[in-house]
Design a protein around this nucleic acid. Structure first.
Length: 498
RNA sequence: CGCGGGGUAGGGUAACGGUAACCCGUCAGGCUCAUAACCUGAAAAUUGCCGGUUCGAUUCCGGCCCCCGCAACCA
């Protein structure tokens, strides 16, 4: 049976639109955990959805490597810093590969060719705006934190995390006069010029901004930072994390470099995906920096929650840590993607245990889409029934698909998934109620024809589901599409029951 | 009086001014195309507590209790 592709000449409603999505850049000293997999998967789903709509899409991820912690960790492991970092980054990239994360670029802040020129250029713009000032700073310095901590943080005069008495030291730093921009930033967020999703996070940051913003230390003495980028024109200082890390979203596109075609094409970011733990940096410091540098502001910030396990933060001591790679080994990438997409709210903390994961896997994947594919394709292939398959454009033109698209516009991946699984459930019901498996075998020609008509419709509807699944579980979506085109039932279950 | 989120059937979640929906589990039927899957039905929630607004609140307002996260350079 030939598949009739609709010609693609009619106007795609998203033609000419671009979409630039980013993940946070991750700390290389952290062991891989579900949080990394989660952020990356959410971002990837948006990137794939955007491509599915035909938008010009760019998806950035990376790592924040200029930290003393990495230096110490390397030393502890008896390794040189850069090979050590390469090893960690290899782990991230492996996780991404295993998860089918379709990133276009992985930017590393230790990358002198691609990252550093942009950071320097950005710094100079802030200096030109008169927003960078040298000040002496005195405070309590905790070696464990490698940063200043406040009196309030102390417990019995010691840092509660490291149980060390902090040193009172004084040092020269360059400061970013962020306070100047507090009002503007507040207006920008209040007016949704930068839309912060969900609204609860927007309100949270607005409440914070009501009292203004304090200036931020933007550099450290060079002798305290092994890695990192020297302040332009003053190599006794190095640029601290804000100027170095947040700028990755720009530098990766070629900002400050000769080849800035990507920057011209994609900036400003359409979506920064972040965790709630770094909201302040992205919703206060980052817009301030961009205002100072005179650059366009990102359009949306999606603030997701954290994944807990059994209601508690995952931690080694509790033994409730779920290793994403092990999970992928056992269940496959799409199972992990399915779980975080459908069973973790993109807006709030979500819970995940091995039991809840397995339950979701069996219900949604094995008994749900996997079983449905088998039962429909068994019938359509045995009875040689098929149908014309709609193009992707036509799928999205279908009225019943609008709630799916709208959910994505609201960044509500969970709702988009529910749309798909509602379709799956109603197809299961339809088969049961109309009993095409019986009709097709009927001696009565009219009944047999009716059975075939039902199968043809199911065949087509399954295709729509397979298209809608693309952003969520891309490998399975492709497999199903292939099976539909060749009208064959899977030789082995798509998702074996566990 | 720091800020935010949450407390809904045995477990997990949803909804939202008009007598609570879904998933898992339990029980009883059905179907046989399918991965012992799938479909139908049943039992099961005074929607944390107290008060208020309202014809009517799980949904709005006030107070209280409990849980979680954040608390400004710990990414």
């Amino acid at each position: 049976m030939a598949v009739h592709w609709q010609n693609m000449s009619h106007i795609n409603r998203n033609e000419g639109q671009k979409f630039y999505v980013t993940t946070p850049i991750f700390y290389p000293n952290a062991k891989l955990h579900m949080g990394h997999a989660y952020s990356a998967t959410i971002s990837d789903i948006f990137a794939r959805y955007s491509r599915l709509l035909g938008k010009d899409t760019y998806f950035l991820t990376g790592s924040d490597e200029n930290t003393e912690k990495a230096v110490r960790a390397a030393a502890g492991a008896g390794q040189q810093v850069f090979p050590y970092l390469d090893g960690i980054i290899g782990g991230f990239k492996n996780l991404y590969k295993r998860l089918d994360i379709s990133y276009d670029q992985f930017i590393r802040t230790t990358d002198k060719d691609n990252h550093w020129p942009g950071v320097e250029a950005f710094w100079k713009r802030m200096v030109d705006s008169g927003d960078i000032e040298k000040r002496s700073y005195e405070g309590l310095y905790c070696v464990g934190h490698e940063s200043f901590i406040t009196e309030k943080d102390l417990v019995d005069g010691k840092c509660p995390d490291h149980r060390e008495t902090p040193q009172r030291i004084k040092e020269e730093n360059y400061f970013f006069i962020l306070s100047r921009y507090a009002d503007k930033i507040r207006d920008i967020i209040a007016s949704d010029a930068i839309r912060i999703v969900p609204t609860s996070r927007k309100n949270e940051i607005l409440a914070l901004l009501k009292d203004g913003l304090e200036d931020v230390s933007f550099s450290r003495p060079a002798d305290k930072m092994t890695l990192g980028i020297p302040v332009p024109g003053d190599n006794t200082q190095k640029i601290y994390v804000w100027g170095d890390a947040l700028t990755n979203y720009l530098t990766a596109l070629g900002f400050g470099r000769k080849d800035h075609a990507l920057y011209d094409r994609f900036w400003p970011a359409d979506l920064h995906v972040i965790g709630k733990d770094i909201l302040r940096f992205h919703a206060a410091i980052w817009p301030g920096m961009l205002l100072s540098a005179g650059l366009p502001l990102p359009k949306n910030i999606l603030v997701h929650g954290l994944i807990t396990s059994g209601g508690l933060k995952m931690s080694k001591t509790l033994g409730n840590v779920i290793d994403p790679v092990r999970l992928i080994d056992e269940y496959g990438a799409d199972a992990v993607r399915y779980f975080v997409a459908r069973h973790i709210s993109p807006f709030e903390d979500g819970d995940m245990t091995m039991d809840s994961f397995k339950e979701a896997y069996n219900a949604g994947l094995a008994n749900g889409i996997g079983n449905l594919v088998s039962r429909i394709l068994k019938l359509t292939s045995d009875h040689r029934v098929s149908s014309d398959l709609p193009s992707k454009e036509d799928v999205f033109a279908d009225e019943t698909v609008q709630s799916y698209a709208q959910s994505f516009d609201e960044f509500d991946i969970q709702k988009a998934c529910n749309h798909i699984w509602t379709r799956i459930a109603s197809m299961d019901r339809e088969i049961q109620e109309t009993q095409p498996f019986k009709l097709v075998k009927s001696a009565d020609a009219a009944s047999a024809a009716r059975g075939k008509a039902i199968l043809s419709k199911l065949y087509r509807e399954l295709w729509i589901v397979a298209v809608l699944l693309e952003p969520i579980i891309p490998a399975t979506a492709a497999t199903i599409q292939g099976l539909i085109r060749s009208n064959k039932m899977p030789s082995a279950p798509l998702f074996a029951r566990k």
